[in-house]
Nucleic acid binder design. Structure first.
Lengths: 173, 173
DNA sequence: TTGGAATGTCAACGAGGCTGACTTATCCTC
DNA sequence: GAGGATAAGTCAGCCTCGTTGACATTCCAA
C-alpha cells in the first residue's frame, strides 16, 4: 500500500475504473501493435503465427524447435504446421544438431532475414513513435508494468534470452 | 523527473535492441493478460471473443451492434456468431431500438453480469498486481505508451467512450 | 413511393489453435 | 548393447474465430 507521500494519484491508480482503462488500453494497443506486420504478412499469405516464429528465430539464430515451443507456448503440432510452411517457402532452415543430432537448429535464410527485417522494421517504427511520443520515463514505466503482468515462467524466459550464450552456428556455409 | 540524471537512458531508449525488448514485452505480457479470463471462459466453453463482447456491453449498457463492431474491429458476421451464442446462453439481451428499429441495443442479463464480473475481476486482479508492483509513475508511463501505440481511430474510440452520454435503457422490464 | 444506405442474419470457408496416437532417430544409462 | 528417455515430426480430427458472399429488414431522402 502506497503511503501519503504519493497523494491523490496513489489513491486513484488502482480504482476499478483506472484498471478498466488499463485493460482496454492493452486491448486497443495490441491491435495497433500487430496491424502493420499483418498487412505485410497478408501479401505473402502468411499469418501472425509465422511472424512470431520468424521473430524468435531472428533473435536467437540456431535455437532449437523445443526451445521455440517454450517461447511461443503452443503445441508442437501447431508449430510444426507453421515451421513446415516457413521451410517450404525457403525462409527458414533447420539443421541437425552437431552435439545432439536429435535437435534441429533453426536459422533464417537470406529471404527469411529480409522478410523478418521488413516485419520488424514496421513494428519497431510504431514502437519507436510511441516511445518517442511518451518519453524515456514513460518507456521505463511501460516496461515495468508489462513485465509485472507476465506469468512468472514467461518473465523468466523473457529475461533469460536477453544476453544468451552463443548458440550453434550454421554448418552449411 | 527526467533531467540530466537520465542522460544515458534517454540515448538508449530508442535503440533497436530496446525496441525489440519492448516488442517482446508486449507479446509476453499480452499472454499473461489473457491467461486468467481464458481459464474461466474455458469452463463454460466460451472464447476470448465472447469475453471482449461481454466487456464492452458491460461497460456501455445499451450500445448497438454497429457500435460494438467498431470497438471490436471485426466483421459483423463474426460478431454475430459470438452474440448469438451469448444470447442463447442467456448472458446478453438484444432489444429492438425504440427510435430506430433497425438497431439492436445490447444489455447483460443477471447471469451475463455475473460472468463478466468474474472475468473482469480476474483480469483486474492481475492488472492491479502489476500496477502495484510497478507503482503510480510507471502506470502513467504504461498508459502513455499504449495510447501512443494505438491506431488513431482506435485511440479516438478509446477516449470517446470514457464518459459517454446515457444510452437507450432496457424496455422489456 | 421507391431506391439506396444502414443494420442485422445465415452459410460456407480458412487459419491456426487444440488433443490424441504414433513413428523415427538419437542419446544416455545400466 | 539393450532399453528407456528425449527431440522432432506426422496424421487425423476438432473448435474458435476470423473471413467473404448473399440476403432480409428498416429507415430516410429524392
Amino acid at each position: 500500500m502506497p503511503d501519503r507521500a504519493t497523494g491523490g494519484q496513489a489513491l486513484l491508480f488502482l480504482t476499478d475504473e483506472q484498471l478498466r482503462r488499463g485493460i482496454e488500453a492493452m486491448f486497443f494497443a495490441y491491435r495497433g501493435f500487430t496491424a502493420d506486420p499483418d498487412r505485410i504478412l497478408a501479401e505473402r499469405d502468411l499469418g501472425r503465427a509465422h511472424h512470431r516464429a520468424l521473430h524468435f528465430v531472428a533473435r536467437s539464430p540456431g535455437l532449437t524447435v523445443g526451445r521455440l515451443l517454450l517461447l511461443l507456448g503452443v503445441t508442437k503440432q501447431s508449430l510444426n504446421r507453421v515451421l513446415r510452411r516457413l521451410v517450404q517457402d525457403g525462409l527458414v532452415e533447420a539443421q541437425v544438431g552437431r552435439e545432439d543430432r536429435r535437435e534441429r537448429h533453426l536459422h533464417l535464410t537470406e529471404a527469411g532475414a529480409a522478410l523478418e527485417r521488413a516485419l520488424s522494421d514496421a513494428q519497431r517504427e510504431r514502437m519507436r513513435a510511441a516511445f518517442r511520443a511518451a518519453g524515456p520515463a514513460a518507456v521505463q514505466g511501460f516496461r515495468q508494468v508489462l513485465e509485472a503482468m507476465m506469468d512468472p515462467e514467461l518473465r523468466r524466459l523473457f529475461e533469460e534470452e536477453r544476453d544468451r550464450p552463443a548458440r550453434e552456428g550454421r554448418t552449411g556455409r
